[in-house]
Write a protein that binds this DNA or RNA. Structure first.
Length: 482
RNA sequence: GGGUUGGUAGCUCAAUGGUAGAGCAGCGCCCUUUUAAGGCGUUGGUUGUGGGUUCGAGUCCCACCCAACCCA
């Protein structure tokens, strides 16, 4: 797209022509009498108003021109006629295009077709657009352009804008919900000397002045727990974490996570809270507990029922439901069963991994209504507290919905000796991966606590019906153009 | 990483191996109440990039780039 392109050049010439007429093509502040929605709301024939917005349509009738002016609150038709604005302003008007920003002053009237309109008396050029807008009727369909040039997607596709407004509302309501319950929002380091709190590959960076390597956090967990040690009983953080792994429909290298910790609570109270939080938000933001997911043609492909109470079931029961008799089989019998069910497994997999694979394929991917999976095997969640009655399982829930894992919740491990042993086992030879400062904090005493993590991007996908994480992240990660 | 599909004008899309087209946008003209305004005319292309086959390639073959989907 060279800048000598004819469409670009035509608009650039118009911009220069404006300058020659003494009109600044990139204007100053403009005092409107109200937003377009406000002006619409108090519309009365004969009333004088000043509005500003982008020109989004132009219907040229010869001497009469009807244009749409659009701001973030809505659209209003304006009427431009040489007799109303005078010859000088009309000459300026003829240098304007769809996409330009314009301020106008005019008198309200209603056309014979009933359209609310401003009869323009005075116009102020606010900004000249040098590149054309996307197709007004078809919008911007090219998914690659929609992601790479999100501003065009937002301008051309109203449904895309709606999803992002819903995302903003979801995040706002989560904050309200937690603050109402006495949780304090905190900020902890995104650059950490040791990337802890999850098993994931971190991004590495370097601090020049201190000559030290740092990692972008893969989770805020270990710092939030330090705050429990420090006497903050209810804390949460709602912000970005980073994982240096693949990009897919469900993964973006930077993603938004909510983590919350509640002293003296356990995983079941956390499950209660998550259930209440998600249903409250769904009702406030989406307006329903029956969330519809549609295909490209607009046909409903599934409906997620968020009505309470949400199902809670032990991991083993769910696997048995999917494959009756699974836990009576020998390890070899389970592998045979997988072949029979056409579930791919590899020879190196441990037995618990084979079961987990069956869980993912036959339970997780087929569970659309929310379900708290409890009593997960200890091997799957090495950092969690063992269940007092059955040490082979841990006091953890995994919330599954929309075919994905959305949120884990723990009764947090607060025994510093056991925590050290677990971290050492996890780190193996790589002792530098152990956050000693965190272990020191635990040794000073951390109250028993419940904790949760929720992937905000996936939660937003579930609530808005988006099928790709790129549809809920304004500027998703993309490869450089070749 | 593997497979499938796709990339053509600013945008949305066509085009049996045989002259690269339409709608919108743009440009010019007509029109004083339009709603995707309308009418007449018109500009605009290294068909993702680089090779190859062929008398002739958007189309067939190879490599690469980017994207979507599926799989790992």
């Amino acid at each position: 797209m060279e800048e000598t392109h004819a469409l670009f050049e035509t608009r650039r010439q118009k911009m220069l022509a404006l300058r020659e007429k003494g009109v600044a093509p990139y204007g100053q502040r403009f005092e409107a009498t109200g937003s377009i929605a406000e002006v619409r709301g108090r519309f009365a024939d004969g009333r004088c108003e000043r509005i500003a917005g982008r020109i989004t349509a132009h219907r040229d009738m010869g001497k009469s021109h009807f244009l749409d002016l659009t701001d973030s609150t809505g659209r209003l038709q304006i009427f431009v006629h040489a007799k109303e604005v005078g010859p000088d302003a009309y000459a300026i008007f003829q240098l304007l295009d769809i996409g330009d920003f314009l301020g106008v002053e005019g008198e309200a009237f209603t056309t014979k077709t009933g359209e609310l309109t401003l009869r323009v008396k005075e116009l102020t050029v606010l900004s000249k657009a040098l590149r054309p807008m996307p197709d007004k009727w078809h919008g911007l369909a090219d998914v690659e352009l929609r992601y790479r040039q999100r501003y065009l997607d937002l301008l051309a596709n109203p449904e895309s804008k709606t999803v992002f407004k819903q995302r903003i509302a979801i995040i706002r309501e989560i904050r309200h919900f937690l603050e109402d319950r006495g949780f304090l929002e905190v900020e902890t380091p995104m650059m950490q000397p040791v990337a802890g709190g999850a098993a994931a590959e971190p991004f590495k960076t370097h601090h020049n002045a201190l000559n030290m390597d740092l990692y972008l956090r893969i989770a805020p967990e270990l710092y939030l727990k330090r705050l429990l040690v420090g006497g903050f009983d209810r804390v949460f953080e709602l912000n970005r974490s980073f994982r240096n792994e693949g990009v897919s429909r469900r993964h973006n290298p930077e993603f938004t996570m909510l983590e919350a910790y509640w002293a003296y609570a356990d995983f079941e109270q956390m499950a209660d809270m998550v259930e209440e939080m998600v249903t409250t938000i769904a009702e406030k933001v989406i307006g329903t507990l029956q969330v519809e997911h549609k295909d490209a043609e607009g046909k409903v492909v599934r409906t997620i029922n968020l009505a309470r109470p949400w199902r809670r079931a032990p991991y083993k029961d769910l696997v048995e439901e999917a494959v009756p008799g699974w836990f009576s089989l020998t390890p070899e019998g389970r592998r045979d069963k997988c072949r029979e069910l056409k579930i791919e497994i590899s020879a190196e997999m441990a037995d618990f991994e084979v079961t987990q694979h069956v869980f993912e394929k036959l339970v997780e991917e087929k569970t659309f209504d929310p379900c708290f999976v409890t009593h997960c095997p200890q091997e799957l969640v090495p950092l969690a507290k063992p269940n007092p009655a059955d040490p082979s399982v841990v006091d953890v829930y995994e919330l599954v919905m929309n075919g994905q894992e959305i949120s884990p919740g723990y009764s947090e491990l607060n025994d510093p000796i056991v925590q050290r042993r677990r971290l050492e086992e996890q780190a193996g030879e790589e002792k530098q991966k152990i956050d000693e400062d965190f272990l020191t904090a635990l040794e000073h005493g951390m109250p028993p606590a419940g904790g949760i993590g929720i992937g905000l991007d996936r939660l937003t996908m579930m609530l808005t019906g988006a099928e790709s994480i790129r549809d809920v992240i304004l500027f998703p990660h993309m490869k450089g153009r070749g």
